[in-house]
Design a protein around this nucleic acid. Sequence first.
DNA 1: TTAAATTTTTAGGTAAATCTAAAAATTTTT
DNA 2: AAAAATTTTTAGATTTACCTAAAAATTTAA
Lengths: 220, 220
Amino acid sequence: MQSYTEENYLKTIYHLAEKTTNVQTNAIAEQMQTKPASVTDMIKKLADKGLVDYIKYQGVTLTETGKNTAIDIVRKHRLWEVFLVNKLNFKWDEVHDVAEELEHIKSIELIERLDEFLGFPKADPHGDPIPDKNGRFAKTQFIKLIELKMGDSGTITGVSQHSSAFLKHLEKLGLTLGKQIHISDITDFDGSVEIRLSDKQINISREVAKHILISSDGKN
Amino acid sequence: MQSYTEENYLKTIYHLAEKTTNVQTNAIAEQMQTKPASVTDMIKKLADKGLVDYIKYQGVTLTETGKNTAIDIVRKHRLWEVFLVNKLNFKWDEVHDVAEELEHIKSIELIERLDEFLGFPKADPHGDPIPDKNGRFAKTQFIKLIELKMGDSGTITGVSQHSSAFLKHLEKLGLTLGKQIHISDITDFDGSVEIRLSDKQINISREVAKHILISSDGKN
DNA sequence: TTAAATTTTTAGGTAAATCTAAAAATTTTT
DNA sequence: AAAAATTTTTAGATTTACCTAAAAATTTAA
């Protein structure tokens, strides 16, 4: 059994490991809003428990057990987010902090029943995949909007930035999950992207375009 | 803001205060599954925070603030129990432990929306009243089944024992909330009670009868 | 390939919530 | 109203998850 804090470390390491193989102490510290010295302490503890492999000065990787634990926490987090949005009518930019707490409730039965109650959703309100009870989920094949060429089309299926500010901005622009988009122009001057939606034409900055994930349904 | 542990102390003191005015150190220790020395430490802390009034060797009472905090935790606990039973199909004997964790999730918005989602329930699955968002709830006028006389009738509206064993037993006997009962006989020998339900006649021990709460809808 | 910069670890300490053992206060019994 | 029993508190430790400051290892730059 892991403590609340240990679970958060595992989750953080899991997410960081999606980008780099060996997760560094400083990176964990930054993510966890704590100091590198504290991270070293915790890493040792997790290594003793067999949840991470750790070589001094070389960073950590999750063991099989550690990875499974992390995925289970991610599963809970995303299921709770679906609950908050679909059942309690929270906005997609309001759910992160509460889900951050709910993900630590320890009851397998609870999460199985919640999953069923929600209709076994495959993705959370931000388009991130929800692992099933065996920890399995489809590796999603997303393209960043910024990588699309003029004339390309696609559907918004995710975001790679979960800050409330960013999500609120998207909402205001009408760029929500499931929306069909078409790249009508890419501005030479600042790289901003002109997008055609079903009902309107908008312009978004490169910075925004970087964090929108598209499942391309064919070029045009 | 209170810690998880502080919240549990406040809740425990609140429940004990329903029986005695001055709550004793040992009683808290027993309830919290901890040692009296630890309770003394925590009581001092709660007193410093203005949540309890404390006189050495004289036990504690909740302050207004302390009481409000406790009631808020009770509200959360009972709303989550309703959620678990009504939405996730848990049995009434399976919800206590999970609700014990869920009650500490800190989000006013969450609990307001949950309350609404559940249709502003007035009682939890055991018949205990759910405080509204201002902490108000009706003082329920229950009579213990054991206090009824032969020939009396009433409706089961609560239980004063939440152990899984007891609740499972009631379930098996068909003694669930809302059931109409009629006292057809009280056995001289062992004080056990013979009860007529709509569809059958059963006999329950004094011990069981003590913990069933009845709203009497007129004598007969 | 040293020197400088960065990253990571170690050493020693703090606060929260516990504990045990012993002392002090209160209550009950004789 | 003493003595005995019980309850409560104090004193001093322990564990978890932190911290700061300094030392050690690694990486980058000159």
